[in-house]
């Protein structure tokens, strides 16, 4: 990236940003639904919506090319996100192809998970030696809190999806962002786990994630401030290794990006193939501050 571009991103000049090394391609993400979503959550860091076509959906043939390449590079696991992955009509065959090669996780809003789809997912899981995880987003303990972020009527639909998955014998990971303030503390966390047990998840799994001040979220709360940057930060080896960009990449229909977070930033596109992205990346973006300081990792 040219220096002036870096300066624009950072709002500073003559500042040194740390590079993150590429330690090995453990995790390959797929922006499998592009930026199209049937919801328009007010905290979405890439502003996905029914009308956002910034990133195109990936078809099974395109995914297959990267699955093969990632296999040759020693990939350990796959993640699928969007937008809403189950808007992709080939999602089940795509997952089947991934699960032949390694464990896979799908990040979904759950609203398209019917009893039939849950049964299909259970069958996929049973057919593979590898784990299939469904990660389902929820943003509050009740409809008022959740629907304010995810849209009217979504709370009920999400609960139905959890019920369908549980009935099929799948145990989704429930993802809650810190927009749900109650889930952050240990008491709120315990309450949410109890609520999930009531819904039929007898061993509930929960992941609480910090928010990224990008996309819709920048309008809902605030954008990153000038001081939120890794300029001048020296990363220890352990710091660097803990960042997801040290061991993962994001595949989109438009090429390979450094991570799942920065796909709206052209400077984060590192190449057309995975192999050509296996190099260090400068942590110039303000969102890098969230990953480093708050320990955000999009993996489960």
């Amino acid at each position: 990236m040219p220096l002036d571009e870096a300066s624009r991103l950072s709002g500073t000049t003559n500042i040194v940003f740390p590079d993150v090394p590429m330690l090995g391609l453990d995790t390959v993400w797929f922006q499998v639904a592009g930026s199209v979503c049937n919801l328009a959550c007010t905290h979405c860091f890439i502003s996905c919506s029914p009308d956002n076509h910034t990133h195109a959906m990936m078809d099974a043939a395109a995914v297959e090319i990267y699955l093969r390449e990632s296999e040759s590079l020693g990939v350990r696991e796959f993640y699928f996100t969007g937008g809403e992955p189950f808007l992709n009509p080939e999602m089940i065959p795509i997952l089947r192809a991934a699960l032949r090669r390694g464990p896979a996780t799908v990040l979904t809003n759950g609203t398209l998970i019917t009893a039939r789809r849950a049964a299909d997912l259970k069958a996929l899981s049973e057919d593979s030696a590898y784990s299939l995880d469904i990660r389902l987003s929820l943003d509050g303990f009740d409809a008022a809190a959740n629907d304010a972020i995810r849209g009217p009527g979504t709370f009920v639909r999400i609960l139905e999806a959890i019920g369908h998955l549980a009935a099929a014998g799948l145990n989704p990971v429930i993802t809650v962002t810190e927009a749900c303030e109650e889930a952050v503390g240990s008491a709120g966390r315990a309450r949410l786990l109890g609520r999930l047990r009531d819904l039929g998840l007898d061993r509930p799994r929960l992941k609480v994630m910090p928010l990224l001040l990008l996309g819709a979220e920048a309008g809902r709360t605030r954008a990153y401030g000038k001081e939120e940057t890794l300029a001048g930060t020296e990363l220890t080896e352990a710091d660097a290794a803990s960042l997801q960009c040290a061991s993962g990449r994001m595949v989109t229909a438009e090429g390979v990006y450094v991570c799942p977070i920065l796909i709206d930033f052209p400077e984060a596109r590192m190449g057309s193939t995975l192999a050509e992205t296996l190099r260090p990346f400068p942590l110039r973006h303000r969102a890098c501050h969230t990953c480093h300081v708050q320990g955000l990792n999009c993996r489960t």
Partner: peptide, 21 residues
């Protein structure tokens, strides 16, 4: 071999990753 506390589970260790190790 690369990390003392890395978990190598059966269902989460791909053949590709194992081959690389």
């Amino acid at each position: 071999p690369r990390r003392i506390n890395e978990f190598l589970w059966a269902s989460a260790t791909s053949d590709a990753f194992l081959r690389k190790l």
